[in-house]
């Protein structure tokens, strides 16, 4: 069953909207935490076994979009293929104060939209939600530099101690040549 069908099946119930509301609040909080540069606080929202992945996208001929349009998590080069360790390193780097690509710090505003819950499953007694969202990230640096990233996010959120943690995030940036000089921001 596709994500869309699952979401449609879940939707009519009041439970669905309660769940979606919870996910929305979580994603909005996350955006606020990142926009206000509480990078360590952001790490606390991530499960220790998180997979954070942004593939490279290719121009392919018609018919090859299904399996050849993007690089794969396990075999190919990507923009990001991170775990908690390297994401923590990225945060530590910003906090050195001499990471020149983030010194002075970028000013970012994240707009989160199109939030939908596409699945609920029990993973060894732990509830895991699948959710998708769109993120428009505005980044401004120094005086004149600005970049917009519009991405699709496919998340798996795990319920831990009554709250949620991101245990998987796949980020689709629809550019084949990255039109920004750097990817120093978190999506």
């Amino acid at each position: 069953m596709s994500d869309v069908q699952t979401a449609q099946k879940l939707r009519p119930s009041a439970d669905y909207f309660t769940l979606r509301g919870e996910v929305e609040e979580f994603l909005y909080d996350e955006a606020e935490i990142l926009d206000t540069r509480d990078f360590k606080g952001w790490l606390d929202l991530l499960a220790d076994d998180i997979r954070y992945f942004m593939p490279i996208t290719f121009n392919v001929k018609f018919g090859e979009h299904g399996d050849k349009e993007r690089t794969r998590t396990e075999k190919d080069m990507s923009w990001f293929n991170e775990g908690k360790w390297s994401l923590t390193k990225r945060v530590e780097q910003i906090l050195t104060g001499v990471h020149w690509a983030e010194e002075p710090l970028s000013r970012c505003t994240r707009l989160v939209t199109n939030v939908q819950v596409t699945g609920v499953r029990d993973s060894e007694g732990v509830e895991e939600l699948s959710a998708r969202s769109r993120l428009l990230l505005y980044q401004n640096r120094c005086e004149y530099e600005q970049t917009y990233f519009a991405v699709r996010r496919y998340d798996k959120l795990r319920r831990v101690n009554g709250g949620l943690k991101v245990c998987e995030r796949k980020i689709i940036l629809e550019q084949t040549v990255l039109l920004a000089k750097n990817l120093t921001v978190f999506f």
Binding site: W79, F80, H99, W100, A101, T184
Partner: peptide, 27 residues
């Protein structure tokens, strides 16, 4: 190959922690 791939990703290019600083300076 997998080990090298993940090392390359965190080192090089626009998402690489080392080279991000180069790009800023060249700019």
């Amino acid at each position: 190959k997998d080990f090298l791939r993940t090392y390359y990703m965190r080192y090089s290019g626009p998402a690489g922690m080392t080279e991000q600083d180069d790009m800023e300076n060249w700019n």
